[in-house]
Simulated scan of single mutants.
Amino acid sequence: MSKPKLLYNREEMLKLNIEVLQNRCNVTVMDIATIAHQQQSKYYKGVDIKLCIESVEKILTFRDVFHHIQFAAEVDRLAEEKMFKGPIQDILYYDLGLFGLDETLGLDVARNYGAIGQTNFGDIDVNKRGVVARLNEDGKKDGVVHTLMDDIVGAIAAAASTRVAQVMNEDLALENPSYQKISLFDLKNSKKGK
Protein backbone atom coordinates (compact mmCIF):
# COMPACT_ATOMS: atom_id res chain seq x y z
CA MET A 1 0.00 0.00 0.00
CA SER A 2 1.45 3.35 -1.01
CA LYS A 3 1.55 6.26 1.37
CA PRO A 4 -0.90 9.09 0.50
CA LYS A 5 0.45 12.45 -0.60
CA LEU A 6 0.86 14.68 2.44
CA LEU A 7 3.06 17.48 1.17
CA TYR A 8 2.21 19.91 -1.60
CA ASN A 9 4.30 22.58 -3.28
CA ARG A 10 3.23 26.22 -3.34
CA GLU A 11 1.65 25.98 -6.80
CA GLU A 12 -0.38 22.92 -5.77
CA MET A 13 -1.50 24.56 -2.54
CA LEU A 14 -2.60 27.69 -4.41
CA LYS A 15 -4.59 25.59 -6.90
CA LEU A 16 -6.22 23.42 -4.20
CA ASN A 17 -7.07 26.43 -2.03
CA ILE A 18 -8.69 28.26 -4.94
CA GLU A 19 -10.71 25.13 -5.75
CA VAL A 20 -11.86 24.62 -2.16
CA LEU A 21 -12.86 28.27 -1.73
CA GLN A 22 -14.81 28.15 -4.99
CA ASN A 23 -16.43 24.75 -4.46
CA ARG A 24 -17.15 25.02 -0.75
CA CYS A 25 -18.43 28.59 -0.52
CA ASN A 26 -18.35 30.16 -3.99
CA VAL A 27 -15.53 32.56 -3.09
CA THR A 28 -12.94 33.76 -5.61
CA VAL A 29 -9.54 35.37 -5.24
CA MET A 30 -11.13 38.58 -6.57
CA ASP A 31 -13.81 38.47 -3.84
CA ILE A 32 -11.10 38.39 -1.17
CA ALA A 33 -8.89 40.92 -2.96
CA THR A 34 -11.83 43.33 -3.11
CA ILE A 35 -12.07 43.32 0.70
CA ALA A 36 -8.33 44.00 1.01
CA HIS A 37 -8.65 46.79 -1.57
CA GLN A 38 -11.56 48.41 0.27
CA GLN A 39 -9.74 48.23 3.59
CA GLN A 40 -6.49 49.74 2.29
CA SER A 41 -8.20 52.38 0.12
CA LYS A 42 -9.12 54.17 3.36
CA TYR A 43 -5.41 54.80 3.95
CA TYR A 44 -3.83 54.97 0.49
CA LYS A 45 -5.06 56.60 -2.69
CA GLY A 46 -4.66 54.60 -5.86
CA VAL A 47 -4.35 51.12 -4.36
CA ASP A 48 -3.92 48.80 -7.34
CA ILE A 49 -6.35 45.85 -7.29
CA LYS A 50 -3.61 43.80 -8.98
CA LEU A 51 -1.48 44.18 -5.85
CA CYS A 52 -4.46 42.97 -3.78
CA ILE A 53 -4.93 39.93 -6.03
CA GLU A 54 -1.19 39.18 -5.90
CA SER A 55 -1.32 39.44 -2.10
CA VAL A 56 -4.26 37.03 -1.78
CA GLU A 57 -2.57 34.54 -4.11
CA LYS A 58 0.68 34.80 -2.14
CA ILE A 59 -1.14 34.03 1.12
CA LEU A 60 -2.92 31.07 -0.49
CA THR A 61 0.52 29.49 -1.05
CA PHE A 62 1.43 29.41 2.65
CA ARG A 63 1.44 25.90 4.11
CA ASP A 64 -0.28 26.91 7.38
CA VAL A 65 -3.00 28.75 5.45
CA PHE A 66 -3.43 25.68 3.23
CA HIS A 67 -4.02 23.57 6.34
CA HIS A 68 -6.45 26.11 7.79
CA ILE A 69 -8.51 26.30 4.59
CA GLN A 70 -8.63 22.55 4.06
CA PHE A 71 -9.52 21.92 7.71
CA ALA A 72 -12.17 24.65 7.94
CA ALA A 73 -13.86 23.56 4.72
CA GLU A 74 -14.12 19.97 5.90
CA VAL A 75 -15.35 20.84 9.40
CA ASP A 76 -18.07 23.07 7.92
CA ARG A 77 -19.02 20.38 5.40
CA LEU A 78 -19.24 17.68 8.08
CA ALA A 79 -21.36 19.95 10.30
CA GLU A 80 -23.60 20.74 7.33
CA GLU A 81 -24.06 17.00 6.74
CA LYS A 82 -24.71 16.55 10.49
CA MET A 83 -21.80 14.16 10.88
CA PHE A 84 -20.67 15.33 14.32
CA LYS A 85 -22.06 13.96 17.57
CA GLY A 86 -22.94 15.69 20.79
CA PRO A 87 -23.22 19.41 21.47
CA ILE A 88 -20.52 20.36 18.96
CA GLN A 89 -22.84 19.45 16.06
CA ASP A 90 -25.40 22.09 17.01
CA ILE A 91 -22.74 24.62 18.05
CA LEU A 92 -21.16 24.39 14.59
CA TYR A 93 -24.42 24.02 12.66
CA TYR A 94 -26.01 27.10 14.21
CA ASP A 95 -22.73 29.08 14.49
CA LEU A 96 -23.05 29.81 18.20
CA GLY A 97 -21.79 33.33 18.86
CA LEU A 98 -19.90 32.21 21.99
CA PHE A 99 -17.97 29.57 20.03
CA GLY A 100 -14.58 31.20 19.59
CA LEU A 101 -12.55 28.60 17.73
CA ASP A 102 -13.57 30.05 14.36
CA GLU A 103 -12.12 33.44 15.34
CA THR A 104 -9.06 31.72 16.82
CA LEU A 105 -8.37 30.03 13.47
CA GLY A 106 -8.92 33.35 11.71
CA LEU A 107 -6.53 35.14 14.04
CA ASP A 108 -3.95 32.44 13.39
CA VAL A 109 -4.15 33.07 9.63
CA ALA A 110 -4.03 36.85 10.10
CA ARG A 111 -1.04 36.43 12.45
CA ASN A 112 1.09 35.68 9.38
CA TYR A 113 1.22 39.49 9.09
CA GLY A 114 1.64 40.32 12.77
CA ALA A 115 -0.45 42.48 15.05
CA ILE A 116 -1.66 44.67 12.17
CA GLY A 117 -2.92 41.56 10.36
CA GLN A 118 -4.85 40.61 13.48
CA THR A 119 -6.25 44.14 13.86
CA ASN A 120 -7.34 44.11 10.22
CA PHE A 121 -9.02 40.74 10.81
CA GLY A 122 -10.94 42.17 13.79
CA ASP A 123 -12.19 45.02 11.60
CA ILE A 124 -13.32 42.63 8.85
CA ASP A 125 -14.85 40.19 11.32
CA VAL A 126 -16.86 42.88 13.09
CA ASN A 127 -17.89 44.88 10.02
CA LYS A 128 -18.51 41.86 7.73
CA ARG A 129 -17.18 43.33 4.50
CA GLY A 130 -17.91 41.98 1.02
CA VAL A 131 -18.08 38.25 0.58
CA VAL A 132 -17.64 37.75 4.35
CA ALA A 133 -21.09 39.31 4.85
CA ARG A 134 -22.56 36.93 2.26
CA LEU A 135 -20.96 33.89 3.89
CA ASN A 136 -22.22 35.01 7.30
CA GLU A 137 -25.77 35.48 5.99
CA ASP A 138 -25.75 32.24 3.98
CA GLY A 139 -24.55 30.43 7.08
CA LYS A 140 -27.76 31.42 8.86
CA LYS A 141 -29.85 29.52 6.31
CA ASP A 142 -30.97 26.03 7.24
CA GLY A 143 -28.65 23.44 5.74
CA VAL A 144 -25.72 25.82 5.13
CA VAL A 145 -22.69 25.99 7.42
CA HIS A 146 -19.89 28.55 7.02
CA THR A 147 -18.98 28.73 10.72
CA LEU A 148 -15.25 28.41 10.11
CA MET A 149 -14.94 29.48 6.49
CA ASP A 150 -16.35 32.99 6.90
CA ASP A 151 -13.59 33.70 9.42
CA ILE A 152 -10.89 32.05 7.30
CA VAL A 153 -11.92 34.11 4.26
CA GLY A 154 -11.95 37.29 6.35
CA ALA A 155 -8.52 36.44 7.76
CA ILE A 156 -7.05 35.89 4.30
CA ALA A 157 -8.42 39.29 3.28
CA ALA A 158 -6.90 40.84 6.43
CA ALA A 159 -3.50 39.28 5.78
CA ALA A 160 -3.65 40.41 2.14
CA SER A 161 -4.64 43.91 3.22
CA THR A 162 -1.65 44.07 5.56
CA ARG A 163 0.70 42.79 2.85
CA VAL A 164 -0.62 45.51 0.51
CA ALA A 165 0.18 48.15 3.13
CA GLN A 166 3.68 46.74 3.61
CA VAL A 167 4.41 46.69 -0.12
CA MET A 168 3.08 50.23 -0.55
CA ASN A 169 5.17 51.49 2.37
CA GLU A 170 8.26 49.82 0.94
CA ASP A 171 7.57 51.60 -2.36
CA LEU A 172 7.27 54.91 -0.48
CA ALA A 173 10.57 54.25 1.29
CA LEU A 174 12.27 53.62 -2.05
CA GLU A 175 11.10 57.05 -3.25
CA ASN A 176 13.22 58.69 -0.57
CA PRO A 177 16.39 59.90 -2.35
CA SER A 178 18.57 59.18 0.70
CA TYR A 179 17.46 55.55 0.78
CA GLN A 180 20.19 53.18 -0.33
CA LYS A 181 19.02 49.66 -1.08
CA ILE A 182 21.48 47.01 0.08
CA SER A 183 21.37 43.24 0.10
CA LEU A 184 22.47 40.66 2.66
CA PHE A 185 25.57 40.13 0.55
CA ASP A 186 26.49 43.79 0.96
CA LEU A 187 26.20 43.43 4.74
CA LYS A 188 28.26 40.23 4.73
CA ASN A 189 31.01 41.85 2.61
CA SER A 190 31.12 44.97 4.81
CA LYS A 191 31.76 42.79 7.88
CA LYS A 192 34.65 41.05 6.12
CA GLY A 193 36.32 44.43 5.49
CA LYS A 194 36.37 45.20 9.23
Rank of each mutant, 00 (worst) to 15 (best):
F84P: 12
K45D: 14
R129K: 14
T162Q: 07
I59N: 05
A173T: 06
S55F: 00
S41Y: 08
V126K: 15
M83P: 05
Y8A: 04
M1G: 07
G114Y: 02
G130T: 01
V132K: 06
V75H: 08
K50D: 01
L172E: 14
V47G: 03
L51R: 03
I59K: 04
I116M: 12
D150C: 15
K191W: 10
K140A: 05
V109R: 02
I35E: 09
S190I: 03
V56N: 00
M1W: 08
M83C: 12
F71P: 04
Q118A: 13
K140N: 04
T34H: 06
K194R: 14
D102G: 05
F99K: 00
K3L: 13
N26C: 14
I59S: 07
Q39F: 15
Q166V: 00
E175R: 03
N26A: 14
A115P: 06
Y93E: 09
E175Y: 02
D31R: 02
I91E: 05
I18R: 12
D151G: 14
K191S: 10
A36I: 02
L92D: 08
N127C: 12
R77H: 15
V56E: 01
S178P: 06
E54L: 02
K3D: 08
D150Y: 11
D142R: 09
Y93N: 00
L135T: 09
R129L: 15
E80V: 02
M149K: 13
K188A: 01
G143S: 11
E19H: 03
D142P: 08
D151F: 15
D123Q: 14
G46S: 01
T61N: 07
E80H: 11
L78G: 08
V109Q: 05
T104R: 08
Y179D: 06
T34C: 03
Q22G: 09
E170H: 03
L174A: 04
R10G: 14
Q118V: 01
E137N: 01
